Deep mutational scan, measured.
Amino acid sequence: LRLEVKLGQGCFGEVWMGTWNGTTRVAIKTLKPGTMSPEAFLQEAQVMKKLRHEKLVQLYAVVSEEPIYIVTEYMSKGSLLDFLKGETGKYLRLPQLVDMAAQIASGMAYVERMNYVHRDLRAANILVGENLVCKVADFGLARLIEDNEYTARQGAKFPIKWTAPEAALYGRFTIKSDVWSFGILLTELTTKGRVPYPGMVNREVLDQVERGYRMPCPPECPESLHDLMCQCWRKEPEERPTFEYLQAFL
């Protein structure tokens, strides 16, 4: 395994491009020591290896001592969030954005069929390849993070704006909380990567959403798509659509 080009840095580690087995181009995620327990990670990795779908980033291998390494397929255009905010983002029109959403829903419909939960679905965790191919990455890892700023769910590192209220408040993460996050991801797509709930801080978002506030229809977004977002944001988790439905609708 060779680490060649550093692609990015996040709160919990770095991402590199490299070569595996001398020939395969891969992405390598390294986790800061202390982010998660190697034992817990190894268990999760076994499950992650079983998830194989064309719209999920394929896991190739893991190094399960500290520092933990995760070796996955390489996606040339990086994260969907950076892609939307970058040069190419300007030229993306609604049909392409909807197609990308459908690809993500397709990957998540598979996660749904496998009775698995992602827990951290957002544009930053979707990767883009050639020809606007989108794949879901980092599934299941969020559960293992041991950082206090994260586990408190009120901490600075927790993605509260993407998280369903029952998950943020009571830790009830299910495929239905993933559906909520998918609704937020749809706003990221239609606004080219704007942060959700602009002008609001995490605490406010939690309070307002509890009181029934939902983001309005983004500019140039059809009402039918906003309606779909609002279905994803129904207060009762069981009233939210399935990913199978979302995939078919898109």
Rank of each mutant, 00 (worst) to 15 (best):
M75A: 15
F249A: 07
A102S: 10
V128G: 04
W20K: 15
P237D: 11
C11F: 08
R2D: 08
V195N: 13
R113M: 11
L186I: 10
P216S: 09
Y170R: 10
A124S: 07
P218M: 07
R143H: 00
W20R: 14
Y110F: 08
R93I: 07
I184L: 06
R211Y: 14
G129T: 11
I126S: 04
Q46S: 10
D207S: 05
T187L: 07
D138C: 03
P33N: 13
P222D: 03
Y91M: 10
Y245S: 13
T23Y: 14
N21D: 15
E210F: 09
L51V: 05
L7Y: 09
V111L: 04
L42G: 04
Y170V: 08
T151P: 01
T191N: 10
K55S: 11
Y170G: 06
Q43F: 14
A152V: 05
R119P: 02
L94I: 07
F249C: 06
W16F: 14
P218T: 05
W162T: 02
A156G: 11
R153W: 06
M108L: 06
K135I: 10
G10Y: 00
Y110M: 06
L144N: 09
T19D: 12
T163F: 01
P222V: 07
E244H: 11
N125R: 00
R234F: 10
V136K: 00
P95H: 06
V117T: 05
P216I: 08
T88A: 13
E112G: 15
P165L: 09
E54C: 10
C221V: 08
S37Q: 05
A156L: 05
K85N: 11
E87W: 15
G86Q: 09
P95N: 07
T187H: 08
A142V: 03
N148G: 15
A102L: 09
W20Y: 12
T191R: 04
V62R: 06
M75E: 07
L185F: 11
L169N: 10
T35W: 10
F158D: 01
L80F: 10
F158V: 05
L141Q: 02
K157I: 15
L42N: 04
L250E: 03
M108R: 01
G107D: 03
L206D: 01
E54Y: 12
T30R: 11
G22C: 10
G22W: 14
R153E: 07
A101H: 01
L185S: 04
T88V: 10
E149F: 07
S64T: 06
K49A: 05
W233A: 07
T88L: 10
I160G: 03
G212V: 02
F12S: 01
Y213W: 07
E188C: 00
G22D: 11
V111G: 01
V209R: 03
V179I: 14
F182M: 09
A164I: 00
C232H: 05
G107P: 00
A102W: 11
Q154P: 15
Y213V: 06
C11P: 00
I28F: 09
G22M: 10
Y60T: 13
A142H: 02
F139G: 00
D178H: 01
T190D: 04
Y91G: 09
L94H: 05
P237W: 14
G8A: 04
Y110N: 05
N21Y: 14
K176E: 11
W20H: 15
A102G: 12
G171W: 09
